[in-house]
Write a protein that binds this DNA or RNA. Sequence first.
DNA 1: GATCGTGTGTGACAAATGTTACATCGGACG
DNA 2: CGTCCGATGTAACATTTGTCACACACGATC
Lengths: 209, 209
Amino acid sequence: MQELVNKVLNNSQLEPKLADEIMTIGRLKKVKAGGVVISPESDSNEMPIVLEGLLKVMRRDPNGNEVFLYFLEGGETCAMSITCCIEGKKKAFNVIAEEDSVLWMIPMGHIDSWVVKYPSFRKFVFDAYQTRFDEMLNTIDSVVFLKMDERLYKYLLDKKQASGSFVINKTHEQIANELNTSRVVVSRLLKQLEKEEKIEQHRNRIEIL
Amino acid sequence: MQELVNKVLNNSQLEPKLADEIMTIGRLKKVKAGGVVISPESDSNEMPIVLEGLLKVMRRDPNGNEVFLYFLEGGETCAMSITCCIEGKKKAFNVIAEEDSVLWMIPMGHIDSWVVKYPSFRKFVFDAYQTRFDEMLNTIDSVVFLKMDERLYKYLLDKKQASGSFVINKTHEQIANELNTSRVVVSRLLKQLEKEEKIEQHRNRIEIL
DNA sequence: GATCGTGTGTGACAAATGTTACATCGGACG
DNA sequence: CGTCCGATGTAACATTTGTCACACACGATC
């Protein structure tokens, strides 16, 4: 376990001293696929770093509609958690475990002092922001510039990329929720993608070709 | 002019010493309405703070389509510039003067050391990130959850809010570009809004009621 | 193997949005 | 005043997306 943390921290190029601190101060958290890591209701004051697995960040509107925003992969952290915690604001998003995942939770209290002390941590934080902005812009691109069929296909490819697997275990209904459309539409478009031989469909499972 | 800078910096609650530094190191820049402040091509290494006026941030896709993301008002800065400059990455957005504006341009070289030295600057930067994330989420909400008529009306209200004026001097074509739709659609929906007595239309000008 | 719940396929239709074409209007300018 | 150009209005139609209804398929369980 310690090795896992170390490995991730090393990959992030954090100074050994900082890695030590993070190691000492943080705590391990395991989440099963589908489990909630962060929700608007929870006011945890911890910043999660993904050690293993995959998280997904979703936006939910007041009427209960949802959209998928982006994934958080190994070594990444949730930039929005940082700002929210610092500002003490309510989170405006949900973070859900897309796969069984292992997280390292760091109490926010130390962020400020680490930013001051460790150049590598500043870089880590700014990198996180940069990446998240990119992902958000990417999401906006999909939603604004693409038609639903392209958006769906892009979603499948992203998921493949993030999970490292050609197989996607989701129902049409679940996918429809993440794209904020209806199940029927997803079925229709998936059928189309199948005809174009871009995917293969099975029950509860889609294979990217 | 110095007073203007000072006023804005004070409103941002920056320490006097930092305000001094910013004052000394920055430079004034004036942009006329419609002028480009940041574009993917420009690789300026400066972070703009809005002293007066209004900037708008637009996303452009490879095909030349655009969408409006959010406004930058007095006292605000472009968080994405910060990360981009730090990472030396190409900007993925355009910043355009929505009105004649006055900016204070700060070379990025100092950011890192200020983050270390000044708590108030850390707060300033994190605030900027927080606000931008909120704006982005807001944009995503509009685009994903709203129909075009609602989105258009929200756009008009946002613009009114940001400019502080009930009058919007834009053509239907310009609005269509910012919402990434067609002129005809905008005309249609604006007519509708007029019937609902939410707006009044004139040539090149819309009044919010 | 019969039953049941959930997931998927599909037709028919409705609503929203995009497109094309053309008419009209208003202001600028000669 | 007449001309011209860009801005707006509008009809007709195409495409995309959403909705409803229902059939069918698959796997689990008894």
